[in-house]
Every structure is written in C-alpha cells, then in structure tokens.
Amino acid sequence: MTLHRIQQRWRIHLSSTLAYRVQRRSATSSEVRETLDSISTRTSAYLSSYCRGVPTAAIKGVAITSLLLVSGLQAWSTKAGTRAQIATTAFKVIAIVAVFVAGLVYLGLGKIASSFSFEGSTHNATGYALALFSALWVSPPSSASLLHPRAFLSPPTFLTRILSHRRMTVSIKQTMSRETVNLVLCRK
C-alpha cells in the first residue's frame, strides 16, 4: 500500500469521525480541514521516515523470519525460550546503561545539544491535549496491565483482576480521547 493511499484512508476515517463532532459542536469547516490536514501530513511523514526507502518486502521478510524463529524456539523448548528472554533482557539493560554512560561522557565534555529551558513551549491548551492524545497510543495501558509481571507467577489468580483492570483503563482512555477531540474542536 502506497503512502498516498494510507493518507487517503486516514482522511476518510477521520472525516467520518469528525463529521459527527462538527454537527454536535458546530466547528467551522476550515477548522476541521486544518485538523485533518495536520494529522494526515504527520502520519505520512512518520511513515515515510520510518521506511527510509527500504523495500516493503524486506521489512516483511525480516518480520516473518523473526516471528518464525521465536515461535520455533518456544515450540522446541519452553526453557530455551525463557533463557533467551533472560539473555535479551540482560543485553537490553546493559545497552540502556551504555546509553546513559555515553550521555554522561558527552555531558562531561561540555557538548550539550539540547536546551532544557523549555523556551518556545506552547501556551495553547490544544497542543497539550494533542500531546496527551498521542501519548495514549505510545504504550496502551491495556497492554501494560496485560503484561504485569505478577501474571507470570500465577496467571489464573490474577487473570480476573487483570481483566477488570483492563476494562477500567480502556474506559478512562476512551473518555480522555473524547475530551481531547472536544478540546481540539472548541479551541476558539
């Protein structure tokens, strides 16, 4: 699927979602068009930067190979799967410590690239609402609760609690999303 088609699909989906809001909140068409343009442009820019000219077949090939490799390992031996997990987790912790140490060295050399003064930050509430809306999709709370470490110890005991927790987090997420859309359309 080309980026153009993805962008078109986004526009159609968002148009149908926002049309209802327009009727309810009487937002002007220019506001809606501006919001749609902003979201679709950001989506296509993100996708194009993510792919960076790598053929789609290669990306899919790597994904399928990795999935088959991990599935084969788990099917062959559960113990091998858990040991692989320990190895990759240890590697990740070492890597993230290396990132921090390299940052400290960079700081010691006096080469700070970013300013931490918050200069140029927006005072517009809509910007913060959009940031919050984006943050909701970075790590869905439902996934976080599903992968709670205690679920490893006793899945049957914690399953009911996890399911009720998921229901609550999904409800909160949906409410916040709706309020964010309302804020965006009523910013003037």
């Binding site: 990795s66 991990v70 590697f91 599903l146 992968l147």
Partner: peptide, 29 residues
C-alpha cells in the same frame, strides 16, 4: 541493540500472551 531488543519483546509477548490464553481457558473466559 534495537534488533536484539525487538526480538526480546517479541519473545516475551509470545510467551505471556499464549500463557494467559491457556489460563483464560482454564478459568472459562
């Protein structure tokens, strides 16, 4: 590093999700 991290995330997702499906079946969900 990112490649190994992705493999680890994939491994843990497969492990936990399949184990929870089994547990959900045992509980009748």
């Amino acid at each position: 590093i990112v490649g190994i991290s992705c493999l680890g995330a994939l491994n843990s997702s497969l492990y936990t999700s399949s184990r929870l499906v089994v547990a959900a079946g045992e509980q009748g969900f």
